[in-house]
């Protein structure tokens, strides 16, 4: 069996990083970054997601197939959001009401 057991120290470091990022994202929300504040918030959330997935969920040690499943799933989420926004984002371009 190819089972990797990470050390408690690794997990603890990841844990500390996650708590730090939580405090960071809360603090940053009070700073006026204009249109970039959601970008920063999502970037931090994505970083946290990667930490949890790679270390706590062992994607670091997983098979290629599992990684494919994960990236494929996120890609599909992107398709859903992007193509719908392709509608909502371009409404009104034509200047005709209701189009």
């Amino acid at each position: 069996m190819t089972q990797h057991i990470d050390s408690v120290k690794t997990y603890a470091l990841v844990f500390i990083a996650l708590v730090f990022l939580t405090l960071l994202t809360t603090a940053v929300a009070y700073v006026d970054l204009g249109p970039f504040s959601p970008v920063v918030a999502l970037a931090i959330a994505t970083a946290k997601m990667l930490l949890v997935a790679l270390f706590f969920m062992h994607v670091r040690h997983s098979t290629q197939l599992t990684r494919l499943v994960v990236t494929g799933g996120l890609l599909w989420l992107a398709i859903l959001i992007f193509l719908t926004l392709a509608d909502f984002g371009t409404r009104g371009w034509l200047g005709v009401p209701g189009r």
């Binding site: 193509l83 392709a86 509608d87 371009w93």
Partner: peptide
């Protein structure tokens, strides 16, 4: 998965979409 909007042609979906 990329074509669902063709059910929405006559809704208020934007012309470009």
């Amino acid at each position: 998965f990329l074509v669902w909007g063709h059910h929405l042609f006559v809704s208020t979906q934007s012309f470009f979409a």
